[in-house]
Computed example of a mutant assay.
Amino acid sequence: MADRERVIAYRVAAHQFDRATADAARLRVFDLGLQDSERSAVPALAARLETVPPLDGGAFTLTWTVRGAPHWHRAGEVPALAARLWPLGDADAVARMNRPPVTEGLRVLHEVASALRDVVTGPMTKGEASARLTPLVPPEVTGWCRGCEATHVHDPVFRLAVLPAGLRFDPAEQTVTFVPLEHRREVPARAEGFGDLVTDYLRLHGPAGYAEVAQYFGAPVRDVKAAWPDDLVAISKKSWLPADRVDAFEDPPEPEVVRLLPPLDPYLNARDRDLLVPDEEHQKQVWRVLGRRGALLVDGEVLGTWQARAAGGRLDVKVSPFVSLDVDMFAEEAARLARARGLEEAVIS
């Protein structure tokens, strides 16, 4: 295999698109968390599992984590995740808070998270939590919100504080509602275990280097480099893998799968987009800023996009291939996705 072909084949296998795993909790995507923006989690699981289990049954926890986005994590791993995702320095904290006018980013974030932890002692909506939190935090991280017609903590700061405050979402509520984690810990004093997240990223999205990992977690490259694990294996001058994944990289299976990947699927969240989709015009379609679309994955290559709309008990899936493709090849995947969404049938066009 050529270098790019080997990387693609390795990642397709690492993402477990072969559906050989029946237990959702054993999917590697949960090592980093499964993003659930725009209802992306269920179709991402449908691309990896024969049967998609309910995520709100207690085995998984939903909260704001990586890049301030909602992610599902294995429930038992969430309390320790707060220290792993804690910013690596003041500059990192300020950047993740969307650069409020502060210099001591870690101290300010600790104050906000500690106040939020004290405020939310039982189920509480985001609006109520925000109203109670705002007068308790430095004014530099608050501002007037025209939509709410109120002064409150800036949203990026609020999102960053939720996990270290020991809070999760109640998935049964339509409005964002927080619930304290069981056995929640004190707000972290420092980052601990970020190297484990680096290793998890490389197992799933490797081989990769400092820049890709930094962009994924929203951290400065220099801080990521300083926290880089010393037991990784260099695959090239700028990319590494964990030692236990080198053999899998050297001889990956052929990536013979056909999948409908949703927008924000973990496979598409790797940061080396030029490798995943070399054509720049195609990249613009796959990673649209507005009106996100899913990706057509055929034997490891992203060969187009798709959109879906539910109408009654039917899922209408419109595919837009970059090359000539028989759309019927996606019929089984569309039917599987419809079932995962609780619909009776799917139509491909």
Rank of each mutant, 00 (worst) to 15 (best):
V29I: 15
A219Q: 11
P188S: 08
L275C: 07
P87L: 09
P255K: 06
P70C: 01
D31W: 07
V94M: 03
S130Q: 15
H15D: 00
F169M: 03
A80Y: 05
L167R: 10
L160N: 07
A248H: 12
F30C: 00
T134I: 13
L297N: 07
G89L: 11
R190M: 02
V141I: 11
L260N: 03
D230N: 09
L197M: 09
V42C: 00
S320C: 02
L136A: 06
R184P: 08
A243D: 12
E128I: 06
P266Y: 01
F194V: 10
V233L: 04
F249K: 03
T65M: 03
L109I: 10
L241K: 11
H183E: 12
A47S: 13
G300S: 04
D230A: 08
A234Q: 14
F178D: 09
L34W: 03
V66C: 10
L62T: 02
D118W: 07
H15I: 06
V66I: 15
F17E: 02
R26H: 14
P164C: 05
V298Y: 08
P100V: 08
D230Q: 09
D251A: 14
D326Y: 15
D265P: 01
V277W: 07
L109S: 10
H71P: 01
G304P: 14
R117M: 03
F60S: 01
E182K: 14
R314G: 04
D18H: 12
L275K: 07
A335Y: 01
D3G: 05
R19A: 04
P53G: 07
R168Q: 13
G304H: 11
R96Q: 14
A59K: 09
N98A: 13
D118P: 04
A161D: 06
L160G: 06
G312F: 15
D90H: 12
A189I: 03
L276A: 07
V258H: 04
E128A: 10
H152E: 12
R74G: 05
N269W: 00
E281P: 07
G291I: 10
V323I: 10
S130K: 14
V137N: 10
S40D: 01
A91Q: 09
W240M: 05
F30E: 00
P79V: 12
A335K: 12
G143F: 11
V119W: 11
P54G: 08
V153F: 08
I348N: 09
L160C: 05
F169V: 00
V42T: 08
Y267R: 06
G68A: 05
T51E: 14
D31F: 04
P255Q: 06
L303K: 15
R67M: 11
P253F: 12
Q215I: 05
R314T: 15
R259Q: 11
A308I: 05
L55A: 00
A191I: 03
G105W: 05
L290P: 04
D326H: 15
V66T: 14
P79D: 02
G58V: 04
R48M: 00
G89A: 14
R222N: 13
F169L: 08
R185F: 01
A93V: 04
L204D: 03
L34K: 00
P54Q: 12
F178I: 02
S324F: 10
L197R: 02
V298M: 01
R292E: 04
V176A: 07
D90V: 05
V286L: 00
